[in-house]
């Protein structure tokens, strides 16, 4: 018993020494239970977000205003499916099966980003999502490229390479609308009015209300805190809005002397309502995923049967 404790202490010291030396932790390495649990929660939530996030955008594929925009939207959504797959694979290295991750999602034990529980009402929303929602996700993911867990870090590098087109295509939609008729300009402004705050909420609660942050920062799973990342995003996005004539819907926004910004109060009641399952589309998103998974079971069963038959005939 005593030797076990001493052994654990030694392993923990070695683990932390590696983290401090910026050496990545790999799947077969010893790691504290808390580290593994945190990663399982964070990476599966990240994977589920990529996949569930396909729904609000998928809603507009058949109604894209041109062939060009339809091709772009299809490619973008296909990327998101790919991101989900990179992340599920990376998360599986922690010893949890893909089957289990999906089950936890369906049981409501695993979450996805609450921003995807808002509806996409018109084409301008596709612009706002690419620009703001992907923009916020990129800010977070660029930082996570330096996460201490090797498979997670490598998945982030791959994802970041693909993301920049996502944000640009969204911004281009907004820009074209702002160059268009008064009605189109109103649509674009209405979209940023509805998506701005949910995008800011994507970074999670303020650091003072985020109990798990300190451990995640200590073990370098996260490299920057929620508030730091949110500020980065705000500071780069506001000028992008101004250039095309859009206004950020924050009457209390303050421009600091050094050119950075201080945002007004975030409606955390709304945030917790949506996280708790009471957003406009929570039920729809989860039900859709559940039904498609269930209805597609015969495809997976046939693939197994085909493989067995094929292997036995060899």
């Amino acid at each position: 018993m005593l030797t076990q404790t001493i052994n654990e202490e030694k392993l923990l010291a070695e683990f932390e020494a590696k983290i401090n030396a910026e050496i990545k932790i790999e799947p077969k390495d010893w790691m504290p239970d808390e580290y593994r649990k945190h990663l399982i929660r964070q990476m599966s939530q990240h994977a589920h977000s990529e996949v569930i996030g396909m729904q609000p955008e998928g809603n507009w594929i058949t109604r894209a205003p041109s062939l060009r925009s339809k091709k772009i939207l299809l490619a973008k959504i296909q990327d998101e499916g790919g991101h989900g797959l990179y992340l599920y694979s990376a998360a599986e290295t922690l010893g949890v099966s893909r089957d289990q991750f999906i089950q936890w999602l369906h049981e409501g034990k695993a979450k996805y980003s609450s921003v995807f529980n808002y509806p996409t009402l018109n084409w301008a929303d596709i612009g706002a999502i690419g620009w703001l929602v992907d923009g916020a996700a990129i800010t977070n993911q660029v930082s996570l490229q330096r996460t201490s867990y090797g498979p997670y870090s490598r998945a982030m590098v791959r994802i970041c390479k693909e993301e920049s087109f996502h944000q640009r295509q969204g911004y281009e939609i907004m820009w074209r609308m702002m160059e268009g008729t008064v009605d189109q300009q109103k649509m674009a402004q209405d979209a940023i009015d509805r998506w701005w705050w949910p995008a800011l909420m994507m970074f999670g609660p303020h650091d003072t209300d985020s109990p798990r942050t300190s451990l995640a920062m200590k073990w370098r799973i996260k490299r920057e805190s929620n508030d730091q990342l949110r500020e980065k995003f705000i500071n780069k996005t506001i000028s992008q809005a101004e250039i095309i004539g859009l206004k950020v819907p924050d009457p209390n926004l303050i421009r600091n002397e050094d050119g950075t910004f201080k945002h007004g109060d975030i409606n955390w009641d709304e945030f917790w309502q949506v996280v708790g399952g009471n957003g406009p589309c929570n039920q729809q998103r989860l039900e859709h995923h559940f039904n498609v998974h269930k209805e597609g079971a015969w495809v997976r069963e046939s693939a197994i049967a085909y493989n067995i038959k094929h292997t036995n005939n060899q």
Partner: peptide, 21 residues
């Protein structure tokens, strides 16, 4: 990286669609 697949052909196709877009 890695993919899930039921046989060799599907593995190759999934890898193409996931990693070489």
């Amino acid at each position: 990286g890695s993919v899930h697949a039921y046989d060799k052909n599907m593995a190759i196709e999934n890898a193409r669609d996931t990693y070489t877009r």
